[in-house]
Write a protein that binds this DNA or RNA. Structure first.
Lengths: 229, 229
DNA sequence: CATTATTGGATAGTGTCACTCTCCAATAAT
DNA sequence: ATTATTGGAGAGTGACACTATCCAATAATG
């Protein structure tokens, strides 16, 4: 198939496909002549993946590139696989995670900021659930998010955070249960599946909130409890 | 306090504060002279809120403006309150929701796209949980997200989606239980609290995934099951 | 075989976003 | 009296994700 057909099948403008090719987000087609190349199903697949990650998961093209990197070069051992998958998953979403580590000193790991109450709370929360608290980036990301909520005047009770944690456990269990046995498909499913179901989870939360608020408070109240629009 | 002190206390550059003032994200200080104004605690609070929403929740300044609009003019009745809160909550996150509705024709509501299987699946999923399926934007957003996952080659089983839905129900119940009685504080807590705990929930999901995958598959495996970095 | 359309490759331009910088006259601090 | 800071306005910046234009080479078509 030619590039114009690829554009048609994916509903992506041809100029954009050329841009993706330039940026290395899409592997080149097989050249048949100096100014001709053919594309196949893998290209359609790849373009759809890129669009899903940017449009639905809200990733930047830079983050998409990182994700594709892992998908194209999956680590051999299952041990490395999960590490790499997790590395990619802290991409973008929910705030700009630094890829190289700016704040933490390379040598002194525990002496830099030991008394941060938010890191402590995040670590305690993780420990209570049996999550590994040694994952610095995730725990620090969680601490940053709790700090931001506090700064905005939202105080989160242990009960509330506990409910979030419990929900996260439930989701994670289902996530892991759904992972296919094939190692190649496994990375893909964990990484892409998680990124694309993140917005699903958040949308469901909002739908469930409507129901929950209607159930809790409108039993004595008005006629139509459903918020319009 | 003067604007330079506000900049210090919030750790936001003075030029950025001026920008927020221009954009209407920060209410003006009380003018004491032609080139002088004083700021107070409400300004500190507001700036911290704006930064939390942009940096942690990842909102655009335009979306922040919408959120502030609702916080500053909370609807009178509880019935309207939840509707307005939900309106604001479908801002930004997880894809560009159109604020006015571009696709749907104003007149024909049900004749436009009746046979979309993804809308059907989203509606069925919501109905099974007792969620209100009449909320067009949320259900259609969910459908878009499911479609995107499918296009990316991720097929989500009913079990998997059910687990997400169950988790969402649990989170929503806790969310609603945590809402304060005061109507003014209620909107704030629902809207801001939800936006700021969205990333918390996603981070927890990743932490829980590590634990879940370690528990499910590394029992027979290597020594250190924790992914490094 | 002549004409028209399409292609790969490269370069440059566009619009949005979130700042950031510079300047000014008026005021405040010292 | 001198220096620093302020509000207000305007222009400039850098990142991002495209989008448009041009070119010679090839493909499709009559």
């Amino acid at each position: 198939m030619r590039i114009s057909e690829l554009a048609e099948q994916t509903a992506v403008p041809l100029a954009t496909l050329k841009y993706y090719l330039r940026e290395g987000l899409l592997h080149p087609g097989r050249s048949t002549a100096r100014t001709q190349a053919v594309y196949d199903g893998t290209h359609v697949e790849r373009v759809r993946l890129v669009r899903a990650l940017t449009e639905s998961a809200g990733l930047s093209l830079g983050s998409v590139r990182d994700v594709l990197e892992v998908l194209d070069h999956p680590p051999a051992t299952r041990h490395e696989l999960l590490g790499a998958a997790q590395d990619v998953l802290l991409v973008d979403e929910g705030g700009h995670l630094r890829p190289g580590g700016e704040q933490a000193h390379p040598g002194a790991a525990s002496a830099a900021a030991p008394a941060d109450p938010w890191v402590a709370r995040a670590a305690e929360l993780a420990a209570r659930r049996g999550w590994c608290t040694t994952d610095e980036p995730l725990v620090h990301g969680l601490a940053d998010q709790l700090r931001a909520a506090d700064a905005a005047g939202i105080d989160l009770t242990d009960d509330h955070l506990g409910a979030l944690a419990q929900a996260a456990d439930g989701v994670a269990a289902a996530d892991i249960a759904a992972v296919p046995a094939d190692p190649g498909a496994a990375v893909r499913h964990v990484v892409v599946g998680t990124l694309l179901t993140d917005p699903v989870l958040l949308t469901m939360r909002r739908l469930a909130q409507q129901r929950a608020s209607a159930a809790s408070q409108d039993s004595a109240g008005g006629e139509a409890a459903l918020p319009e629009r």
